[in-house]
Design a binder for these strands. Structure first.
Lengths: 243, 243
DNA sequence: CTTGAGGTGTGTACGTCGTACGCAACGAGT
DNA sequence: ACTCGTTGCGTACGACGTACACACCTCAAG
């Protein structure tokens, strides 16, 4: 029996066996650990940097070891999405439905800006992750007692959420463009794109757009634009609520 | 000199040289051709199927030949995005601003549903593609004469557009999930997810959501939800316009 | 007609990705 | 003691984007 493993097993005695468990003493990962590590990588370097190899390395596990806990990369992304939505687990506060929807919208926006890679997960993550259901549930609860039927209540929430995700996605896209072009502020980006812009405008085919470029003074004030848009949307759904 | 190419060049005479120019007589691609081919692939098999190799093969060109026309894959995607926005090149019709915004929203939604891969291009494509500027210009023009300042006018357009992209993205995500699970109708999806859903609801932590699941009768009527949301948003911005 | 040069299309090659597969080590049942 | 399922991991495969160098065609100049 000793001879059977003489060429590799019997030779590594004590010292070698002592230093091996130091690296992976006993793996025993949890899904929460996997999600947290993946989110850290994505926050720091973008979703593309989250590869199974990188993730495993960060967790001190062999690459294929991850497949013991997830079925594939899509699972990892689903875990990531749910993990960041957990940050929104607190109940939304506010005296009335409008206040609740408003702070919920602002918080969702802040969440997306904190984790911009969320916009790239659209393709993979399903909408039934537990913490997202939790958010929907809380918002639905805030609309209770207004005499809305279930369908209308859900549509109200969906409408506000759609606005928030759409608007924030546009802003993230712009921030990404800035980073790609190496611009610090919007003015830098404008400088970089000035020739392209001039070429577009000189065609004379976009007079209204040109006027906006000349006259707009809050072109970079995303917060102002978002809040104005949000108030408009809330006004719009309010009309549905009081009828 | 003949000896220098004896092993490959001199041996191929006439027949071989005759059949070679048949393959690539003169390529001379155009950017429009590249975009059209890429869009076809993406429409049929998704954005992931658009690889430089696949695209080159479809165009009858060597893989690296594409790099004569584009700087990299990001360029291809930017071409694709602009190409499909060209479908929206017609001026939006409608008697008043509200009608123009409404049909424009419906058309944008239809466009995205026709090319669902658009939602995945958020990370790469910049917002300054010519045909997208053209859309913005037309919408701005429709708001002329209402006495709005440039910033508010742009925010109105941005708000409606954000709602449309957000809502349509959610719908596309759902359609993708259905396809992934092999479901034909929403009811199939519900069957597949019934255990997961039951598990979620049995925790008792989402009473409002549970009530919606029980009482909602238009859960799958995306068009109804979208139109209700759109009317709400338009109502909301209308208040800003008439003040 | 020869020759040199510049632009154009192509093939090969590198490093990365997700993940299928099969081997080594281990704990438990006969 | 011997098997056997379970677990952890290394290797390997086929894709990807693209850098790079080479082969070719065309045309100007001699």
């Amino acid at each position: 029996m000793a001879g059977k493993r003489a060429d590799d097993g019997a030779q590594e005695s004590i010292w070698q066996r002592m230093e091996r468990p130091a690296r992976p003493p006993r793996a025993a990962l949890t899904h929460a650990q996997i999600a947290a590590a993946a989110v850290e990588i994505a926050d720091a370097e973008g979703l593309d940097a989250v590869s199974m190899r990188r993730l495993a390395e960060r967790l001190g596990v062999a690459t294929m070891g991850l497949y013991r806990y997830v079925r594939g990369k899509d699972d990892v992304i689903e875990l990531m999405v749910d993990a960041v939505y957990a940050e929104e687990a607190r109940a939304a506060e506010g005296r009335d439905w409008r206040e609740v929807l408003r702070v919920s919208a602002l918080r969702l926006r802040a969440l997306m800006l904190r984790h911009p890679w969320l916009v790239e997960t659209t393709a993979q993550a399903g909408p039934l992750t537990p913490n997202f259901v939790a958010r929907t549930d809380r918002l639905l609860a805030s609309l209770d007692g207004l005499g809305l039927d279930a369908d209308t209540a859900m549509t109200v929430i969906g409408t506000v959420t759609a606005f928030v995700t759409g608007a924030t996605t546009a802003r993230i896209r712009m921030a990404r463009l800035m980073r790609k072009e190496g611009a610090e502020k919007m003015d830098d980006l404008r400088t970089i794109y000035s020739s392209r812009m001039k070429w577009l405008l000189e065609s004379g085919r976009y007079p209204a757009f040109e006027r906006y470029i000349r006259e707009g003074v809050r072109k970079d004030d995303d917060d102002w634009q978002f809040e104005l848009g949000l108030e408009s949307v809330l006004d719009g759904v309010a009309a549905r609520l009081t009828i």
